[in-house]
């Protein structure tokens, strides 16, 4: 069973959902001084996600040397798929993504991150999920973003169902062992 990383100590950490998050990362940190509390934006929404807006908000500070964004899109599966329906568990979805983001912030020296997941009907070509991380140097942002995505797939309570172009509702998408394996590689001994 894929388990959420143990971040109970961080569960009470407040995370910033607001648009002002970029203002928190102004402190100069390239020399190894105390790192400011990373700004963390967690959102579960039916609306489209504008990756450019999120990225510029995160990266708009002199402390940031690296920005990594990942956007997951809905495929048309060779023309077969009309839409994906994303069901979620309201309340738990936001809480789990927040825990994953806080765990990422505790493992890597990131300056900020955003983890945004859509629900509802999503057409091919539209984005499903966005993860963005900033750091002073690239490695932390790359790894934290990868970690966040792996756990967004395996421990955030979302389920995909296919709606087909012939008007029928297809099946629920099955969980992939490769996704569990991807998440498990982050487990500490």
């Amino acid at each position: 069973m894929a388990k959420t990383p143990d971040s109970s100590a961080l569960a009470a950490t407040m995370y910033d959902r607001g648009a002002a998050s970029g203002s928190e990362v102004k402190q100069e940190d390239a020399g190894g001084g105390p790192r400011p509390e990373p700004s963390i934006e967690v959102r579960v929404t039916a609306e489209r996600i504008d990756a450019g807006t999120v990225a510029s908000r995160l990266a708009g500070s002199g402390a940031v040397g690296a920005l990594v964004t990942f956007t997951g899109y809905c495929r048309d599966e060779g023309g077969r798929l009309k839409a994906l329906e994303l069901e979620h568990y309201p309340g738990m979805a936001e809480k789990q993504i927040g825990k994953i983001a806080n765990e990422a912030a505790s493992r890597w020296p990131i300056l900020g991150c955003a983890a945004i997941h859509r629900h509802g009907l999503i057409a091919p070509g539209e984005e499903i999920v966005l993860v963005a991380c900033t750091s002073a140097h690239r490695q932390a942002a790359f790894e934290a973003a990868s970690f966040l995505m792996d756990f967004m797939k395996t421990s955030a309570p979302f389920w995909k169902r296919e709606h087909l172009v012939d008007g029928t509702t297809g099946g629920w998408v099955e969980a992939r062992d490769t996704d569990d394996a991807a998440a498990n590689r982050w487990h500490r001994l």
Binding site: K153, F158, A175
Partner: peptide
């Protein structure tokens, strides 16, 4: 998969004190 009050739990977890128990298939978000 099961969550008690929005936290993932194993099947060996006691139910005592639980307000909401959610039962669902493996997750397929992202």
């Amino acid at each position: 998969r099961v969550a008690i009050d929005h936290e993932h739990v194993d099947h060996s977890e006691p139910l005592a004190g639980a307000k909401e128990v959610a039962i669902f298939p493996p997750m397929t978000g992202g």
